[in-house]
Write a protein that binds this DNA or RNA. Structure first.
Lengths: 211, 211, 211, 211
DNA sequence: AATGAATGAGTCTTCATTCAT
DNA sequence: AATGAATGAAGACTCATTCAT
């Protein structure tokens, strides 16, 4: 009655379908926003009928969690880049790293404006679960940022009197600030160079161990 | 044909009705979000029929601009408080002022969480006109922040080498950061006191004229 | 308590207002159709508020009767022209007269396409009362046409064996046919000249006393 | 992926549903007019929900084209009857045929007054597309009428000097005239017999080859 | 597992009509 | 008599969801 091989194959196909749907939804949400797309659009983009959609998700809202996780995975890749796990050992390296992150933020906004827009703006307006899931993902970054600060203090190039939680927060908010600036592009005459320079100077003066 | 007294009285009543509708819409948007409320809800909350709504606004979207302006007016009142026009003359006064602003931000979020939520999160996902109107309002704050920095430099307590545009930006982003923190309330163990202290320290070390 | 002079003046003003409303409605109906205009439009075109409209007519439908009568008055003037009461005494004069009527039909359609369109097409779709009122007006024409035929027979230039009712009908339908042709303008390559010539030949061969 | 049998069956059912909707719409339009019925009415009459309506037509207006075509199909059947393609070879046969057509016109009006009413009166007041579609259908009749006249001339029983276009037009207008008379039923003392007799006499004297 | 026809709650919008001033 | 604010019935359309095949 139960053929384990066939069962496994089916499970794999199902997983694939699901991923295709999430991927299609991701693209659509990025380009048009969650509220303005329909289940039909998602299914059509994935090449199935909307009926099939309901074999993989309970309802429209249900796919959003998967889309959000997809977003954060994508951002992690794009912002941290290949050096994801390397560890700066001096204030210069630390600043250089964040300068690169800021630049990558600009690149990200330039190449996928919908992504940041969605997370910063639309996502949270949908329901509390979305906010929660975003915060959950953001907290993961926060933890990393805090660890980064801790290591920086250990390495000796960050001010040992810092409140590491707040400092991690600051790291994140500098990033968010960069993304906001990137979103507004050249408005207000703020070039990428000026923003990068000032934010790094900012970081440096606020966190550096040296007075 | 035209009785000026009656005309004036009518105009006043119309203005009042409009304000009532905006006020009702404001409350509903704050509590439930724009997308999830209907024209009927707004009208009912204002104690009129939905038909009346259309005597004052062309369509549902149309009232949103008024609601947004209402939001920013409200924030201005709540955050700047009575001292709206006073001018700090020392770094201490400057920091004290922003400490108060941060505290008021916490109060604001506590008493009206929907407000910040709406502006920070939902508003911009509605359409480009909304983004534009928010940015317009935000730019007004930006201008004030830049003026503040300029005056601080003239007064001698802010670092004369600052890029005033970026510094203004920083002032704003500290504020936004405080609001975000307030939104997350006690999550992550960040108390209001810690946030205030660190952000002010932050401001101080980044902007102060003294090394 | 009742001043007869003032009462009369009031009645005159009321009559004038009513006429202004009918006139405004007539113009609007001709250009935009009854269904697509609103009481507001009529009132505004007459320079009063829509509330005033209801002082002169019970409801929107109510003004239509007056508009229809206005239409037929207008057509009578335009089609029959100055010779409204003259009487042809020969087949030539008879034909010449109808040739002129046909030409005036073309002129009418050209200068006021909405009028014919309205009566031929829209009016009757509104309700049975409209049809009735149009038929009533049309019957007046029919009576005139029948009288015309009778007189033609008496004069000796129309076939005495004619059924005068049917012949009157035919006179009318030739006119209607001309108006339809005029409405379609040059479609089908039918010029005004060809239509006039053929319809008159038609009339002549069908009604003339000579074989 | 695609089961041809099932696909075909579905297409057939869809066609059926569509036809049911058109048929329901047809009946309603005939009895109550297009403007006064709602999508809900049509759907309900077809035994489906209004949502289903929108699976088959883009909007309310969209079904009208199908209804109009339905009308003309119906008229063709009813007026021309079984002899639709036969060809008269003498003036007697020609007249007899049109006498039958006139009688059938009376029958048609008697059994379905709304049909003629709709086409003659309401349809064209809806929008230009409707007029165009009616003219298109009418032109098909016109072409047939012209061909009929041409064949009559060839056969020798119609006057060779006739302008075939105009004569075709006349054939049609006689038909329309008959329908109008039928609509007015016995009003004015015009019986079906009198109308038939006179119109045929009319046709005969106007088109016949013999003087 | 996939399909897509059917559903109907929900929403916006229009406009004829009423009525207090 | 004139006004115009208020009303609410009516109607078109959307879309998430269900379910028989």
């Amino acid at each position: 009655m139960s053929d384990p091989v066939r069962t496994a194959r089916r499970a794999a196909r199902a997983e694939l379908r699901r991923a295709e749907l999430v991927s299609a939804a991701y693209l659509l949400v990025m380009t048009r926003g969650f509220r303005t797309i329909g289940v039909d659009d998602i299914a059509a983009a994935a090449g199935v009928s909307h009926g099939t959609f309901y074999n993989y998700f309970d309802n429209k809202r249900d796919i959003l969690d998967a889309v959000i996780d997809h977003c954060f995975d994508h951002i992690r890749e794009r912002l941290l880049g290949p050096e994801a796990d390397a560890d700066p050992v001096s204030m210069e390296a630390f600043c250089a790293r964040y300068a690169r992150v800021i630049d990558r933020g600009y690149d990200l906004v330039a190449s996928e404006p919908g992504l940041v827009n969605f997370l910063l703006l639309e996502a949270s307006s949908i329901d509390d679960g979305v906010i929660e899931r975003c915060l959950h993902n953001a907290r993961l970054y926060g933890v990393q940022a805090v660890q980064q600060v801790s290591r920086g203090i250990k390495q000796g190039f960050l001010d040992p009197h810092l409140d590491v939680d707040i400092a991690g927060e600051v790291l994140l908010s500098v990033l968010v600030s960069a993304l906001f600036s990137a979103l507004r592009a050249g408005e207000d005459g703020l070039t990428q160079e000026r923003v990068r320079l000032q934010l790094i100077t900012f970081l440096s003066s606020a966190l550096s161990a040296e007075p």
